[in-house]
C-alpha cells in the first residue's frame, strides 16, 4: 500500500477537498476581474472626456476637442477588448465540452452585435448633427453592451453580470433621452464607475 492509498483523518480529507476545489475552480473558471476593471477604466476616462467636451447645458466644461475625447475612448476600449479576450477566452484551457461551445457562441454574439452598431452608425450617422452622431454611436454601442451583459448573466447564471447589464440598459436609455452631455456623464459614472465597483466586489468574493 503506497502513500497515495493511506487515508488521512476526516479533517485532513476535508481540507484536501477544499484545497483541490479552489485550485480547480481557478484553473477551469476564467477570472472576470481584469475584464470588469479594464472596461470600467475605459468608460470612466473615455466618457469622462466626452462629458467635459459636451457639458450638461451645451457649454464645454474643459477645452477637450471631440476627436481627443473619442481617441481616449476608442484606444482604451481596444485595450480593454484585448484584456478581455486574453483573460476570458482561455485558448489554452484544458476543458472541452458545452462550456467551450457556450463561450464561442457568446463571443460571436459580441462580434455580431457590434457589426449591427457599425452598420447602423455609419448609415445614419452622416445625416445627423455632430453631437447627435456621437450620441447615436454611444447609445447604440452601450445598448449592445448592456444586452450582452444581461444575456451573459442568464447564460452563466451570474447575478453581478446580469444586474450590471440591467443598470447599464436603464442608464443608457435615460442618457439617450437626456442628451449627449448627460449620456456621457451617466456612462462615465454608472458604466465606468459601476464596472470598477463590480470588478472590486468580484475580486473580494473570489478571494474569500
Amino acid at each position: 500500500m503506497d502513500d497515495d492509498e493511506r487515508a488521512l483523518s476526516p479533517q485532513e480529507m476535508l481540507r484536501l477537498i477544499e484545497q483541490q476545489e479552489t485550485a480547480a475552480a481557478e484553473r477551469f473558471v476564467p477570472d472576470p476581474v481584469p475584464h470588469f476593471l479594464a472596461w470600467g477604466v475605459a468608460w470612466l476616462a473615455g466618457y469622462g472626456a466626452l462629458f467635459l467636451h459636451y457639458g450638461l447645458f451645451g457649454r464645454p466644461y474643459a477645452p477637450v476637442p471631440a476627436w481627443a475625447a473619442l481617441t481616449v475612448l476608442w484606444v482604451l476600449m481596444v485595450a480593454a477588448l484585448v484584456i478581455s479576450a486574453a483573460t476570458m477566452w482561455q485558448l489554452r484551457s484544458p476543458v472541452r465540452g458545452p462550456s467551450q461551445e457556450r463561450g464561442t457562441m457568446y463571443g460571436l454574439s459580441w462580434a455580431l452585435g457590434f457589426l449591427g452598431v457599425w452598420t447602423v452608425g455609419i448609415r445614419f450617422g452622416q445625416q445627423l448633427p455632430e453631437a447627435e452622431t456621437g450620441l447615436l454611436w454611444a447609445g447604440l454601442s452601450m445598448m449592445t453592451v448592456a444586452m450582452l451583459y444581461v444575456a451573459g448573466g442568464a447564460v452563466w447564471h451570474e447575478r453581478t453580470m446580469f444586474l450590471f447589464g440591467v443598470g447599464m440598459a436603464v442608464l443608457n436609455a435615460a442618457g439617450v433621452m437626456a442628451g449627449p452631455g448627460w449620456h456621457a456623464l451617466l456612462m462615465a459614472a454608472g458604466g465606468g464607475g459601476g464596472s470598477i465597483v463590480a470588478g472590486l466586489l468580484l475580486r473580494r468574493a473570489r478571494r474569500r
Binding site: 502513500d3 497515495d4 492509498e5 493511506r6 487515508a7 488521512l8 480529507m13 484536501l16 477537498i17 483541490q20 476545489e21 485550485a23 480547480a24 475552480a25 477551469f28 484544458p94 476543458v95 472541452r96 465540452g97 458545452p98 462550456s99 467551450q100
Partner: peptide, 23 residues
Amino acid sequence: IHAPARLRVVATLNALREGDTVT
C-alpha cells in the same frame, strides 16, 4: 474515494460543469 490521491482527482473533476471534460 477514501484515498488522498483519488479524492483529489475526484474533487478536481467535480469542479467541471456537467458535460465538460478535461484533457
